[in-house]
Design a protein around this nucleic acid. Sequence first.
RNA 1: GGGGCGGUAGCUCAGCCGGUUAGAGCAGGGGACUCAUAAUCCCUGGGUCGCGGGUUCGAGUCCCGCCCGCCCUACCA
Length: 518
Amino acid sequence: MSGATFISTTIPYVNAKPHLGHALEYVQADAYARHRARQGDDVLFMSGSDENSLKNVLSAERLNISTRELVDTNVVYFERLIEHLDLRVDHFVRTSVDIDHIKGATEFWRRMEKSGDIYSKEYEGLYCVGCEQFYGEAELVEGKCPEHLTVPELVRERNYFFRLSRYQDALLEVIESGALAVWPASRMNEVTSFIRGGLADISISRSIERARGWGIPVPGDPGQVMYVWIDALTNYVNGLGFVRDAEGYHKYWENADRRVHAVGKGVIRFHAVYWPAMLLSARVPLPTDVVVHGYITLSGQKLSKSLGNVVDPAELVQQVGTDAVRYYLLADISPFLDGDFSEERMVSRYNSDLANGLGNLVSRVTSMVTRYRDGIVPEGGAVTEADTALVNQVAASTAEATAAMDRFDGREALARIWDLVRHTNAYIDGRAPWHLAKADDAASQEVLDTTLLHLVGAVRRLGWLISPFLPSASDAILGSLGESLKSVSVAEPWLDGLPGCGIEKAPAIFPRLELPVD
RNA sequence: GGGGCGGUAGCUCAGCCGGUUAGAGCAGGGGACUCAUAAUCCCUGGGUCGCGGGUUCGAGUCCCGCCCGCCCUACCA
């Protein structure tokens, strides 16, 4: 146990601006990264951009600019989205720029070659530029690429091939033994049945002509560049300094407890079959988890540029704020299945859960401590059934949310956290502190003290619990209690250190949003 | 064609190896309260659990067939 966790997003092509699907994967990976970090792991969260793609070359040609110019321009939108969504990305790989990546991909290729897994042969196939992938006739729909609905081009040239076929048994073994877990289980079934169906060797290079001279050269053959997926997959180790045998590589990959890839359902095969096989060939440890999310539809329709229904996540953040977007993506969209986006639903969940639920709870608690005890958290008195029930809910929500996150299920985690939000609100009404405050007998005052202490404890715990999902709100809540995340531990008794603390009436953490009227 | 995953209250979903009157959140209806972001709390859910058979003392929960949606995979004519 090294206590280290590696988590990555896929690296998108930067031939266009990011859409909501990118945002989904980003926040899912970010929540997991923050979760593990909070559990005490040393976490490295990596993202990046896939720039060596023919798709980028063609987009640039259409715009009449250089490929370099295109990727340099577009990558900024992704970096900006990462900021807008408040992601704690530790390292961002640019595959056409980073020297570690370019050298690393080359070294990776050499290792596969050394294992005897690379050979060249004449090949002819139907290639979809949009997918950067060869298709068999049978996979086409009316002769067109099923993803892009364009006619693939017939390509014939000498290419290098990877002996994927050799790794069929080994891959089944790592997946079935659980060494490489694919989430959810249904996706794992897909992968194993695909492998059982037989693995053919795959083309891993293309002529420099077809690539328009863009891409990472194949070592020892200036006429060929690497197939974009081959260099792209190696970004995960290259971003850690694989080629330099860097300390980061040893720590966050080779010796890490968890090596996690968050991916979309469209690229499972690359991450759960090709990439592990490449790693086996290069004799590098495999990922431990591949977590597969679905796609986001918009009012039931697939996001597509031609339909003009692409939602710009950056714009969305500007309209409703980072918390609303993060919360919606994490709490409402299934982590594993396709989800539907609707602005109305996003606003509705924000208002009911964040503004009316948690936000209002923080307001009323801080307000009562300020009003009834001059902002000083009191010592508690005798504990009764209602207090114990609250304590139990704190423990249950904490345990359940933590366990859910270890299953990559942020939606479930948030649901269990909100059990505590509701329970705490109900606890307040059950105690009616405003009545206790008016009663001047000692007994009532003691109950009030106990109640306020427990409330502050619950709010503190909630602030801690939401930190992977809503980091800035978490800071705000803990800040209003004079706490920072670092000073709060799950291990310590949950009311420790609270009596005597000075707190202030918190400003609205989640101001209500108005539904867009149109 | 083969395989997989879904089809549960208006909406989004829970329901593990079959077992008392099928659940949650939101929305809707009624009531209470005032600390709070007109927020909160309490009460309120007669849903053919896609359809039809079957196994069982008993089935959303297992078996068979069918319908619908999505996905993976392959082409037998």
